[in-house]
């Protein structure tokens, strides 16, 4: 049971000046894993996520979701992207508006609000929330639809250090509890090591590194093992 990516290429723009965001990528990601993708800006990590989410079509290659008959994929963006006219609760339940999947949802909104520390904000509007709170709602909206695969595109990068650490902890606990497949894109090597079981390193649309992180949770950024892995990743990325 895995996500299998074969020869995935994505190009943008007209033929002579085409930009290749992804180049012939082959990759297998086990279901239930927490995989981090790191790389510099423009390395193709967001493109890969958008292709996985079905928001864009690949130029060539394909994505096979082995072991999932009707896969439900949720994506969380860098910005919360909440509907300003809906309350926190209505935003979380947004996926319900799609009639066809109405019956599939097993997640209870009140439990989700509680798990995300939003129990007092169910009736608040997005404009009344802080950045961290809004991102929690965005996470709630994804979890509500009970997806098999959660894609996260630098969701905590715009948040302050304390809020980010708090949300990283919430995400790790949710993953340890539910065992969902999470693919998390970040440009922060520390974040990748704090959360990931596996760290993929990308550059210029290709995979240049694939590391298994076998450190126990919760991880301590000050520990020797953590520092060593950090050095390894930075060496692969280069330029240091």
């Amino acid at each position: 049971m895995a996500i299998k990516i074969h020869g995935l290429t994505k190009s943008y723009g007209p033929v002579p000046n085409q930009v290749r965001a992804l180049q012939n990528l082959d990759l297998t990601i086990e279901l239930g894993s927490l995989t981090m993708i790191v790389g510099k800006s423009g390395c193709g990590k967001t493109t890969l996520l958008r292709l996985l989410a079905g928001l864009e079509e690949p130029t060539t290659g394909n994505i096979e979701l082995e072991g999932l008959a009707q896969p439900n994929i949720g994506i969380m963006f860098q910005e919360p992207r909440l509907m300003p006219w809906l309350t926190v609760q209505q935003n979380i339940e947004f996926a319900k508006l799609h009639k066809e999947v109405d019956q599939q949802f097993g997640q209870d909104t009140q439990q989700l609000l509680l798990a995300l520390g939003l129990e007092r904000f169910g009736q608040a509007y997005p404009t009344e929330l802080s950045g961290g709170m809004a991102q929690r709602v965005a996470l709630g909206r994804i979890l509500y639809s009970d997806p098999d695969i959660i894609l996260m595109d630098e969701p905590f990068s715009a948040l302050d250090f304390f809020t980010r650490r708090d949300l990283q902890k919430t995400l790790r606990q949710l993953w340890q509890k539910d065992g969902k497949t999470i693919i998390f894109v970040t440009h922060d090597v520390g974040e990748a090591l704090l959360l990931g079981q596996r760290v993929l390193i990308m550059e210029a649309g290709s995979l240049i590194g694939d590391l298994k992180i076998d450190l126990a949770y919760p991880r301590n950024p000050g520990a020797t093992g953590f520092q060593q892995k950090r050095e390894d990743i930075l060496k692969i990325i280069g330029g240091f």
Binding site: L55, E79, R81, L97, R141
Partner: peptide, 13 residues
């Protein structure tokens, strides 16, 4: 467009 993309990602018609 970013809000519309949320709809697409959640499979809204």
């Amino acid at each position: 467009k970013k809000l519309l993309e949320v709809g697409t990602a959640l499979h809204l018609t």
